[in-house]
Simulated assay, not measured.
Amino acid sequence: RETARALFGHHGDRVHSVYLPYDLPWLQRRFLRHFQPRLGVVMETEVWPNLMAACNALDVPCALVNARLSERSARRYLRLSRLARETFARFRLVAAQSAADAARLKRIGASAPVVTGNIKFDMALPAAAVALGREWRATIGARPVILAASTREGEEAPMLDAFTAHPAHDTALLVIVPRHPQRFDAVAAQVGATGLRLGRRSAAAPPSPDVAVWLGDSMGEMAAYYTVADVVLMGGTWLPFGGQNLIESCAAARPVLLGPHTYNFSEASEAALTAQAALRFETVDEAMRAAFDLLGDAPRRQAMGAAGQHFAQQHGGATARTLDLLKPLIKG
């Protein structure tokens, strides 16, 4: 809700940020009768069968936009083939991120999905967050920064081990930003167990020179962390979580190091690798060594960052294409 207020608060009563009810038929019908929407727009993968059924019964047109579907998720849907086909067939519009996503969505019941691209390529880094990241950098100075972004449970420990094992680790700052805020304290405890000096963003001060690991225990500041970083290790890719979105890091012109597990973001990941904006490694140890190598190779690091920025800009336009498709669906 804090993020929603930051993004939409200036619109006043024109935007209401509310929670969807649990996906139970009577709760969804009550929700729809109360708000009386003229159009329902579902993002990416948040598909709820009873919500779709209620919208269908009350004649609320629905669209699934920026849609993505991994092969693994498609197989899971096909285990409940009848329910999946009924649910996805109820969308008046399915706008997919890629041709592969569109094909998988059609396989599980979506009617005539179209490819519009990934809306996240149209994002602009928030100016306030970029300014904050630059403030941090001014305080840190020339000390190189390795960012472990959006890490998941089980990934921080090998990252800390790999960082500590590198002979140049005392020259760099490792910034860890866990994906889920409920894990902030647990990750802080892991850092403490290594004997490395820990700083926390929640302490409201940039890391001092004696801090080895800075914990990004804040919300809504990811662009600031990307801005202060020199190299990014993308969380969610080192264990089978399916990865995290790397577009924001590319837009910030930061080289991205990926692990083997990117199936939730396969198209964007492969495109970034092809554009030479990212590198893939099988293990955290390999990636950490590569991160330190990049810290010592400014021309290559800058070339990867520039390639990432170009890659992000080149794939823009999905938002406008999606809005053009949504306009005819709005009732009345």
Score class of each variant (00 low, 15 high):
residue 2 E to M: 04
residue 10 H to R: 09
residue 12 G to A: 01
residue 22 Y to S: 09
residue 23 D to H: 06
residue 24 L to F: 14
residue 26 W to D: 04
residue 30 R to M: 07
residue 31 F to Q: 10
residue 34 H to C: 04
residue 36 Q to E: 13
residue 42 V to M: 07
residue 43 M to Q: 05
residue 44 E to G: 01
residue 52 M to C: 12
residue 53 A to C: 03
residue 57 A to V: 00
residue 58 L to N: 10
residue 63 A to I: 06
residue 63 A to Q: 00
residue 66 N to Y: 03
residue 68 R to C: 11
residue 70 S to W: 11
residue 72 R to H: 12
residue 76 R to W: 09
residue 78 L to R: 15
residue 81 S to N: 14
residue 83 L to M: 14
residue 84 A to M: 10
residue 85 R to S: 10
residue 92 R to N: 12
residue 92 R to T: 13
residue 99 A to Y: 10
residue 101 D to I: 07
residue 103 A to K: 08
residue 108 I to T: 10
residue 117 G to S: 03
residue 118 N to E: 11
residue 119 I to Q: 07
residue 121 F to A: 02
residue 121 F to C: 03
residue 122 D to S: 01
residue 124 A to R: 08
residue 128 A to E: 15
residue 130 V to R: 09
residue 131 A to H: 06
residue 133 G to M: 04
residue 136 W to R: 05
residue 138 A to L: 10
residue 138 A to M: 10
residue 140 I to Q: 11
residue 153 E to I: 00
residue 156 E to I: 01
residue 158 P to K: 01
residue 168 A to V: 04
residue 172 A to K: 01
residue 175 V to T: 09
residue 183 R to K: 12
residue 186 A to T: 11
residue 192 G to M: 02
residue 192 G to F: 05
residue 200 R to H: 09
residue 202 S to W: 07
residue 206 P to T: 06
residue 207 P to S: 01
residue 207 P to N: 06
residue 210 D to F: 01
residue 222 M to G: 15
residue 223 A to H: 10
residue 224 A to T: 14
residue 234 M to Y: 03
residue 235 G to V: 03
residue 237 T to Q: 00
residue 241 F to R: 10
residue 243 G to E: 10
residue 244 Q to R: 11
residue 248 E to S: 13
residue 249 S to H: 00
residue 251 A to T: 06
residue 252 A to F: 01
residue 255 P to K: 06
residue 255 P to S: 08
residue 256 V to D: 07
residue 262 T to M: 14
residue 270 E to G: 08
residue 273 L to R: 09
residue 279 L to A: 15
residue 288 M to G: 13
residue 288 M to R: 11
residue 289 R to F: 03
residue 292 F to C: 02
residue 298 A to V: 15
residue 300 R to S: 15
residue 300 R to I: 13
residue 301 R to T: 15
residue 302 Q to E: 15
residue 302 Q to L: 14
residue 303 A to T: 14
residue 303 A to F: 07
residue 304 M to T: 12
residue 305 G to A: 13
residue 310 H to L: 10
residue 317 G to N: 08
residue 317 G to F: 07
residue 320 A to S: 14
residue 322 T to C: 14
residue 326 L to Y: 05
residue 326 L to F: 00
residue 327 K to M: 02
residue 327 K to R: 15
residue 330 I to K: 03
